[in-house]
């Protein structure tokens, strides 16, 4: 068998395509829900980290550092295989989403914090002098400005979350990678793996390029 028939076998590709599509759908669902949960968690954490009473601030800092240090794969395995020992049995999807968003939330919190700290003090002072509450200041003045700063790093983080969804295949979640490995076993041919790799690329490459473009434009605007 030649290299093309081995790695890019059209007949195998057509036969296993429906499996890959099913896996892609699961990957996208897992990615999107983990990104959203991570954003919400990260925004909340950044507020606690910046503005809460000091014991809570300290807890937020510890959380952020711990979950940026722990490998996602280790966390995922703990959630899926260890938690059942204390009676908490989560489905593969929920386990994966939990692990991914716990970690993504820690990174997102640091991104939001940096974005908020980049806003000049005068913006807070002008808001306070006008009588806006801390909450109104955040919602109407600070966050709308910070969002512009944090969109490139947030997109970057989202790319990482989508890539990390592939780890969920180790807890038997039928995501894109899992479907591809199964299809490979079924067809006794590696073409589905190549197909899966190409699908990841097709989705993430444009996002990577977009981040680079945003960062260039942003850098240029700041002179």
């Amino acid at each position: 068998m030649g290299i093309v028939e081995t790695f890019l076998n059209a007949e195998v590709f057509v036969r296993t395509w429906p499996l890959l599509v099913k896996g892609l759908w699961v990957t996208l669902q897992l990615g999107a829900s983990s990104i959203l949960a991570g954003l919400a968690l990260g925004l909340g954490l950044s507020m606690v980290r910046l503005y809460a009473l000091w014991p809570l601030r300290l807890l937020a800092r510890i959380y952020i550092d711990v979950f940026r240090s722990i490998p996602v794969l280790v966390l995922l395995i703990v959630v899926y295989y260890a938690l059942p020992f204390v009676g908490l049995r989560l489905s593969p999807f929920v386990s994966a989403m939990t692990a991914l968003s716990l970690v993504s939330g820690a990174y997102t919190a640091e991104i939001f914090r940096a974005g908020i700290e980049a806003i000049p003090r005068g913006q807070f002072e002008a808001s306070a002098a006008l009588g806006l509450t801390a909450r109104q200041t955040m919602i109407d003045v600070i966050l709308p400005q910070a969002i512009r700063v944090v969109i490139p790093p947030l997109t970057n983080n989202s790319i990482n979350v989508v890539k990390d969804t592939a780890l969920a295949s180790v807890v038997a979640m039928p995501d894109l990678l899992k479907q591809a490995t199964q299809a490979q076993a079924l067809a006794a041919n590696p073409t589905p793996l190549i197909g899966a790799a190409l699908i990841y690329l097709a989705f993430l490459w444009p996002l990577v390029a977009l981040v680079s473009r945003m960062e260039r434009r942003f850098g240029a605007r700041r002179r």
């Binding site: 000049p120 005068g122 913006q123 002072e125 002008a126 002098a129 003045v141 400005q145 512009r148």
Partner: peptide, 11 residues
């Protein structure tokens, strides 16, 4: 209050 550096909301 009116500040030296204006502190208008740029957005």
């Amino acid at each position: 209050m009116v500040f030296q550096s204006f502190n208008l909301f740029p957005h």
